[in-house]
Computed example of a mutant assay.
Amino acid sequence: MSEAEASQKSGQPLMQLDNVSQIFHTRKGDRPAVRDVNLTVNAGEVLCLVGESGCGKTTSARMAAGLNKPSNGRVSYQGKDIWELDKAEFASYRTSVQYVHQDPYASLNPIRSVFKTLAAPLRRHGLVKNAREAWDRSAELLRRVDLTPPESYLNKFPHQMSGGQRQRVAVARALALDPKLIIADESTSMLDVSIRVGMLNMLGRLRDDLGVGFLFITHDLAIAKYFGWHGRTAVMYLGRVVEYGPTPDVINNPKHPYTKALLNAVPEPDPDLAAKKLPGGGLRSADIPSLAALPNGCTFHPRCPLFEEGLCDVTGPELTLIEPRREVACHVVARDALERDLGSGGIVRADPPKPTASLSGAE
């Protein structure tokens, strides 16, 4: 039975963040980097987490990877709180969840050859018995990430390879321990555009062939569309998820004004279509509020084109189910959806279930 089938049969998500928050304590006061985030990833599925730089994507990813302990909330792996695991269970979790960093120039040790980089985790966890096995296994890992022939790369050092080749070595290192989940933090953002598609195709093949789940962090909705089309997308703004749903729905029919602004920022090669884009994404302001002085009510309201005084600047919105599998944190959008349902005679849930941003299968 595959990992994806086992996960679906048990009904237990692979990775789950429940009302997770991360507050950084500084000399100048507390900084709420992530607030009440709910995310779930099942085996073999893709969850894309998108938003501007500084919105809390990487902090959320680090909590999922066990690198940061949340200030509040619960991070679960296969149904167990990772911070309550015993030593053996935590070691198993740390091998099953692997992290691919953004910068391929900083994530590899410059004085280690590719072979030593790949062999280190294999030897550390007793997956190989001798140097010959380590060499063969390292060669196999390079073939998986399309670095062939592997003999041409095993003895190279990072400075002898391009950025794309380095990032493939980083992915190979993540695969060395047969992970069930890979957290890819902006793993293509520092690569040339000409080789991004090849990298994404390679990651997609690994997802399909090995049944690896992905928490894919990106600021680019075009990348999320390409890689996570059959998964789901969560959009973050200032530490909170403001829109969540199947990737095709979020991309083709965004509901939250912030998501619309992100899509408006995607370059358009057609001059006629580009001319129709709203200046500044249609936002009232380009200034992002500081975490040290978050606005009252909805933190997006100083920039929001749907802003209503006395509503948006008073109460912060919660993620609300506005249609099947679509959740949006916006007073105006939620109200319009409610009025639409009432007008059409549809069934309205006065108290919708608590959103969990779960992945329930490919669309």
Rank of each mutant, 00 (worst) to 15 (best):
F90E: 15
V46K: 06
F157W: 15
P302K: 05
P352K: 04
A293S: 14
M1V: 09
S53I: 11
D136W: 00
A120P: 00
Q16M: 11
F90R: 15
R173W: 01
A64F: 00
V241W: 01
L203S: 00
E318N: 14
R112W: 08
A350T: 13
V242K: 03
P289N: 02
K255A: 08
P110L: 03
D336L: 12
D208S: 10
C55P: 06
A65C: 12
F307S: 06
P13I: 10
N264P: 09
I183C: 02
A234I: 14
E309C: 01
N253H: 11
S7N: 11
S21K: 01
R74S: 11
I182K: 02
R132A: 13
G245Y: 02
S344R: 11
M236T: 08
S360A: 09
I322N: 02
A265M: 10
K255E: 12
G345D: 09
G79W: 00
F216Y: 14
N252I: 05
R144I: 14
T259D: 01
P324K: 08
S2K: 06
V328N: 08
G198N: 09
R74E: 13
D313K: 06
F300I: 14
P158H: 03
N72D: 13
I322R: 02
D36L: 05
K57W: 07
S162D: 10
E45Q: 15
K9D: 12
G245I: 01
S7F: 00
K129R: 13
K9L: 11
A337C: 11
W135V: 15
M199E: 13
C304Y: 04
N296D: 15
D270M: 08
R205S: 09
V266F: 04
